[in-house]
């Protein structure tokens, strides 16, 4: 049997499959990559379905997409409680305190994460124009995400947070004090993020550097370095985030959260 490889998540699917069953990316369209190497996150077609464990996720809408999960018995997802859009009444939810509660309060991060267990349906969305970024995590992967950008993670993913090192990085870095860290052990997991505007990803070679507007940073492999650097423009300080490979880095084009400014 012939197989086709998803350029976004590297999963293999039988030839002729129109969307990746692991991340929903269209397999019958060419990937959009800029001349400098930034790859656009796949535009998930309305009503696209993909699977994790025994559950199914369906993406609805395009401007502010909704992720609707049909949770199977024994499967669960975790999320920040305010991203729930609707759910079946019988889907149980429970909140659990995340480790480092006081630090999280000081950092303005949610102290409790909410867990929903199957069977039943539950749907999620954030409050800004943007895209869902579907990141299937293979076993033994670590990924760092800016605060308040993750929509949901599956039960097989360990969640912690990583304090950003260096005062300058905290003050000028644009990502707050902490990065959310998602880790898989021996089992595959699925992480869904919400990026404001459009989302682009680039894979940096070892030692390769790029400067990013701090608010535009969305996620990175934990192998990617993140520092705040001052750019000399003969005037007021200009701080940029310097990311250094190897690994993937994701950015969002609407880095100032428009909705909360209204």
């Amino acid at each position: 049997m012939d197989f086709v490889s998803c350029q976004w998540c590297q999963s293999q699917s039988p030839a002729g499959t129109t969307s990746c069953p692991a991340c929903g990316a269209a397999l019958d369209q060419r990937d959009l990559v800029s001349d400098s190497g930034w790859m656009e996150a796949p535009k998930l077609r309305d009503m696209t379905e993909f699977r994790f464990s025994n559950s199914v996720c369906q993406v609805e809408g395009e401007v502010v997409p909704v992720a609707e999960i049909a949770l199977a018995q024994g499967d669960a997802v975790f999320f920040e409680h305010h991203v729930m859009l609707w759910k079946d009444p019988q889907v149980p939810i429970a909140s659990r305190a995340a480790a480092g509660g006081l630090k999280r309060v000081l950092a303005g991060m949610p102290v409790f994460l909410t867990y929903a267990s199957g069977p039943g349906r539950i749907a999620f969305s954030r409050d800004a124009t943007g895209e869902l970024v579907v990141l299937p995590l293979h076993p033994n992967m670590e990924i760092d995400v800016r605060e308040h950008a993750f929509l949901l993670g599956t039960h097989s993913i360990s969640y912690s947070f990583e304090r950003i090192k260096g005062l300058a990085n905290i003050v000028y870095g644009g990502s707050g004090m902490y990065l959310d860290r998602f880790v898989t052990q021996g089992e595959q997991g699925l992480l869904i993020l919400h990026g404001c505007g459009n989302v682009f990803q680039r894979t940096l070679a070892a030692g390769e550097k790029i400067l990013i507007e701090p608010g535009g940073f969305l996620y990175k492999d934990s192998s990617v370095g993140l520092d705040s650097v001052k750019i000399d423009i003969k005037g007021p300080d200009l701080r940029m985030a310097e990311v250094t490979g190897p690994g993937r880095v994701g950015i969002q084009s609407m880095y100032h959260h428009y909705a909360t400014e209204q």
């Binding site: 800029s34 001349d35 400098s36 930034w38 505007g197 459009n198 682009f200």
Partner: peptide
């Protein structure tokens, strides 16, 4: 120089 426009909701203008 070359200019490339990418994205659709909040387009990015990249100038080489």
């Amino acid at each position: 120089s070359r200019v490339q426009i990418s994205g659709s909701y909040v387009p990015v203008t990249e100038v080489d």
